[in-house]
Design a binder for these strands. Structure first.
Lengths: 345, 345
DNA sequence: TTGAAAGCGCTACCAT
DNA sequence: ATGGTAGCGCTTTCAA
């Protein structure tokens, strides 16, 4: 057993960052008291005079609590890990991410984005699990799969929430039903009397998770109509490719076009116009995502707008799930779409 | 002193995630040995048979090391914290971020993005410092200032690297000299005989950190020439604002325009054309950042392209700095610009 | 009202 | 070749 002096440990090396022990020493109290004061634990159990001394000492030393040590002791890190592949960390995502960060912070969580690991499945799950987050939210991330979920659960990460075109087995799901997008676009084109509909699918493989369902939705839309056919058009986001595509497109007799998003639509419109086609007279074009570029081009793009569940609601959902880690997987629909009719279709 | 049995602690609650102690128990060895084996410490000091048993046990239990505990013990978290305000987490940034993540991972670090905290200066510094990262890289983040750096250093975060238009005192700096951009644009417009140059500055306050230096560079370019003047044009990224701006622009007698970036340039070109001006005949336009939209417009946009230091080099730099935490602040230039001449100027 | 001490999971030093 | 054990910084129970 130690005797005496324990409340006054020797000062630490000069350059070392101050710990709660240092604060205690300077304030002339125990580490326990420091903890009580700085965390406002147990209302008035510490006298106001002492509280003031402790806070002064902390300020004077520039003390910053050590979240790692706190997490170890508490058994929970307070971290919500967001995972997202490179492509997703894009413009649409930027503000949503900032909002989510904010909303989670208000609920006492720390949102942290962990970019592409280079691994997939169980291996990716292990990388995430090492940090022992309270929850993992994977955004459109196809490296999150059933194995990854299993690893996470086994490592004590109680909440795994997948957000993407397809739900991940075993995890909670925010489903963004991308099929709606294609369906709605085709509905509009068909109603305008178009019969041979091209659907532009991006060559970028990392977008297939979105592109395939949008195509599938378009095909579903075509089947619901008589005499409407859908032709898949693979296209890279590149002017040369677009020029070649426009030629081939004319031969296919396409009179209506649904592009993966407004960027691809813009590229296609340009190429069609350069090849002598008129938009929308010869080919009607519908884009998606309501990007700025669609309003700057002439003709202005008709597009399928996406309304996702607001970040604040997602934060509340996460907060609730973290509170009940063993609840059975829930599925929430987070996508509503609407057509923005402009000039191109 | 404990006696006996210490190598065989009692099993833990069934649902609890396995610890190295559990692995040790299953493999019939001590926790120390588990640590040696799983971290490949000290070459052959553990027999191959034992190593195999340990690895089997770990696999069977689904053991994932606890990075938090490891960090506490090691005194370093292995984390490189990236901070960025909402606007920056944009398209240009996406791939750079993914690359950096990758490059840092290869060097044994974990890159983690910590979005806008809602706080600034010392308070923001405290939020970051809590996580005890080995380094903080702030990207175009104006909430990182001298006070934040001081807090971080005091909390033992040895490496603070700022990347933005202006260096942060006390921290290492990656300077992206945005003035070059404006200078180069004005040089081109003046050489083409334009004399009254508008410079479009975005109304979005969060972009001012870039916009002001670009404007300053343009002014510097004008001073270097006779009879060339620069007129600041504030503009919001909005069609209505652009229409009003185009009218006022005609009155000002502007015959050359440098826009903050290609998006603003596109908006301006559109508005000018709609108001009856010809581009480039009446007004020559130069954009910046070489965005896709610049190639889709007619006329195609002349733009100032940016070449940043590749992520791999930034990762190597960070790695070196983490190895020598007390080195004096270094400054590195990471921006090269080049003019891409197309049709608009 | 305050303090002592245990212990979160891990690694590294020193024994054996 | 392997094991005991101290201790990273913190919170929290129990004791005073």
């Amino acid at each position: 057993m130690m005797t005496g002096m324990a409340a006054t440990p020797s000062p630490r090396a000069a350059g070392a960052p101050p710990t709660s022990g240092d604060v205690a020493r300077v304030a002339g109290v125990s580490r326990a008291t420091v903890s009580y004061v700085l965390n406002n634990t147990e209302g008035g159990r510490v006298s106001e005079a002492t509280r003031e001394r402790v806070r002064d000492a902390a300020r004077q030393l520039g003390y910053v609590p050590h979240a790692v040590a706190r997490a170890l002791r508490a058994g929970r890190s307070g971290i919500v890990l967001l995972t997202a592949p490179a492509v997703t960390v894009g413009p649409l995502f930027a503000h949503a991410y900032a909002d989510l960060q904010q909303a989670l912070a208000e609920l006492g969580h720390t949102a942290v984005l962990y970019g592409p690991t280079g691994a997939r499945g169980a291996e990716a799950g292990r990388r995430w699990a090492e940090l022992r987050p309270d929850a993992v939210l994977s955004l459109m991330d196809d490296s999150m799969d059933e194995d990854a979920v299993a690893v996470l659960h086994k490592a004590g990460v109680g909440v795994v929430l997948g957000c993407g075109p397809v739900p991940v087995p075993g995890a909670h799901a925010l489903v963004a039903d991308q099929e709606q997008v294609g369906f709605r676009a085709v509905e509009h084109l068909a109603a305008a009397g178009r019969r041979t509909l091209g659907v532009i699918v991006p060559a970028d493989a990392s977008l297939l998770g979105f592109a395939e369902p949008r195509l599938a939705g378009a095909e579903k839309g075509a089947r619901a109509r008589d005499a409407v056919t859908v032709v898949r058009q693979d296209l890279a986001l590149d002017e040369g490719a677009a020029t070649r595509w426009a030629r081939q497109c004319a031969e296919a007799g396409i009179d209506g076009l649904f592009a993966y998003n407004d960027e691809y639509a813009a590229l296609a419109v340009r190429a069609l116009q350069d090849s002598g086609k008129r938009v929308p007279e010869d080919v009607a074009v519908v884009g998606a995502d309501d990007l700025l570029i669609g309003r700057l081009l002439r003709p202005r793009l008709t597009t399928v707008r996406m309304d996702y569940m607001p970040s604040r609601e997602i934060a509340r959902l996460l907060n609730r799930l973290i509170g009940t880690p063993d609840a059975p997987p829930e599925t929430h629909d987070i996508l509503r779409t609407g057509l923005v009719v402009r000039e191109s279709a």
